[in-house]
Design a protein around this nucleic acid. Structure first.
Lengths: 125, 125
DNA sequence: AAAAAAATACGAAGGTCTTCGTTGACAATA
DNA sequence: TATTGTCAACGAAGACCTTCGTATTTTTTT
């Protein structure tokens, strides 16, 4: 009976971003932020997210209220960890360098961060 | 006729990692690295990746040779960019901080990087 | 030459994701 | 009260993903 981390899909993240920002929302509130998506689509997504345990639903009123089940940083951490595993062969350093480089961080700063991470990665082993 | 970036799935990344590391491979070589997966499963995945343009296949010999279509850094860049959009509301800074924090980077170093990124993000706007 | 092994191709099953139409309950308004 | 609007529930369709069994061809081994 291990609690398995259900990786949110892209669509689910669209919803979670709104929930993280506003704390709690009705389906309609989320729906209004979601560009094209039809109302029932948003509803269905949120219902499924509730089944999955990605969000918590208060059904005490006719209009249900949804909250994120995990806080933003926690979920982001798991997603980053997953990407590091799948795309960067487990090296967080590579991911950070990649993200920094794409952000036009000056070469000398980049080198500094790289050195720092190498020192830390060395300690882990 | 726009070239659309086909996001590799997790399974496809398992294969790409091997291809990036070795440059080019037969199905069997990849298969041997892929834990449990049956041979025909690996084959099928690679065939589909070829259709999608994720890999390039040399069919001049009976035993086909596969190469990655895009280099590692390029694909990694797109994946990180996608994650930044979907999970970090577009802020590369947040992602970097998140990844550094999970790596037990000392608080003062973290603060330094944060400041640096803020300066840069400021310039972008 | 016959048998075994290795390779590709194909199709189909079972699963998940996303979308939407429809229904039925309840609420607000004319 | 009758109509109109709002909401949750449900089911089903279509797309994609992963897996694997089977068939066919070619190569290697005996």
């Amino acid at each position: 009976m291990v609690k398995v981390f259900k990786q949110p899909t892209d669509r689910e993240l669209d919803i979670l971003r709104t929930l993280w920002e506003r704390g709690s929302c009705t389906v309609r509130q989320v729906h209004e932020v979601m560009g094209d998506t039809g109302y029932t689509t948003t509803l269905k997504l949120m219902q499924i997210m509730s089944e999955k345990g990605l969000v918590v639903r208060d059904e005490s009123q006719r209009t249900h209220i949804y909250r994120p089940a995990e806080d933003e940083a926690h979920t982001q951490g798991q997603l980053v960890g997953h990407l590091i595993d799948k795309a960067f062969g487990g090296s967080a350093k590579k991911l950070v360098i990649q993200a920094l480089a794409a952000n036009k961080v000056p070469a000398d700063e980049l080198e500094r961060v790289k050195k720092m991470l190498e020192k830390i990665e060395g300690k882990e082993k």
